[in-house]
Simulated assay, not measured.
Amino acid sequence: MAEAKFEESFWLDTTVDKREREGLGDALAQRARSGRPMVGFQLKNADLAGIDLVNHGEHAGYQLRDADLYRANLHGAHLFALDLRGSSLMKADLRQANLHCADLRGCNLLGIRLDGARLDNVIWDRQLLQERQGRQRLRSGDCTGATELFQEAEETYRNLRLHLEQAGLFEQAGRFFHREMVMRRLRMPRYSAQRLLSWLVDLFSGYGEKPLNVVLFSLGLIGFCGLLYFLVGVRLGEQTLGLALDRDLLVNLMDLLNCFYFSVVTFTTLGYGDISPHGLARPIAAFEAFVGSFTMALFVVVFVKKMTR
């Protein structure tokens, strides 16, 4: 049997060059089918092209966890639902491979080659390995090391995003684009206008990937300005609408609703003219109208970007 040619220690030996080992792919596939654990396997530079590691007839795939697959040749490999958590796939060749439902959490994916790979339903990390390590370095005070890791994370996110876009998986590609831009921001000088602007774009729209952020910001600004109008007062004809402690609760509540209405028409720049600002309400209305026109344009751009993918 193919797997019998390789002792248990062979799979864990870091000193053995597995590049030219004949029958290695068949032996690994046989080992997987045996049901014995495959943890920490050292497969650096291994030629595993076309290997079949699919657990046929079962929902759960095989496990190949914490493996070193640096520069491994997995071209055209069948890896459906394979559990690769914690493995190093750095610069591995996974072109044309089937990674459908594979678990890649905790993997080092720097420089991975994924041209033509099947990537639907892959289980990804919310934060890639380099990002987590970079944040740990940042907390420990190692800014230089953190910046280098953030750069690697940005490159990895970009690489994954491009391949996901090619595969038509735009939702996941959008998430990786957002993380890519966050990594770029974290490499900027900490107290710089450029970094502040990048943070604001992220806050308001998630770098164009989160239209809900624009909606929530709009609702928040409308509500905040409505409360300010209620405190400083606006006019409905000759009548002043605003907080008046000498009036009963119902009247104040109706005035508050009218102030929210005025905030909506000001934010959207409709300007019906039935309610008008005066005094301190004027600069507030001018600010809200300016921000509102900008925010609505931003929402259209973000929404169209998401819907046209």
Rank of each mutant, 00 (worst) to 15 (best):
G223S: 09
Y70F: 12
M254N: 05
L250M: 10
V291Q: 04
Y62H: 15
F217P: 10
F6Q: 11
Q194S: 15
W199Y: 10
I275Q: 04
R282P: 10
T308N: 08
F224P: 12
L94P: 06
R118D: 01
L243H: 02
S263N: 00
L221N: 00
F176R: 13
L128P: 13
Y191E: 12
R195P: 10
Y191F: 15
L104M: 07
R85D: 04
G50L: 11
A146V: 07
E131L: 15
Y261N: 15
A146F: 01
L94F: 01
G23H: 03
S88R: 10
Y229E: 13
W124L: 14
T268F: 04
N73G: 09
L231N: 03
L270K: 05
Q239V: 15
C143A: 14
R161I: 12
Q133M: 15
K44R: 13
G86L: 07
V304I: 12
M38C: 09
R139I: 08
L82I: 15
G237C: 06
N121P: 09
A77C: 14
G226W: 03
L228S: 07
G35S: 05
I51W: 01
G233N: 06
Y261T: 14
A81C: 13
F41L: 15
P37V: 05
L236G: 07
K210L: 08
L249Q: 07
H163D: 13
A173P: 08
D120C: 10
G208V: 07
T14I: 09
L128C: 15
L200N: 00
E180S: 07
Q239W: 03
Q166V: 07
S293V: 14
A27I: 05
T308V: 14
F177M: 11
N252A: 05
R71S: 12
V251H: 02
N213G: 08
K18E: 05
D103K: 11
V302M: 10
L104C: 03
F6E: 09
F299Q: 11
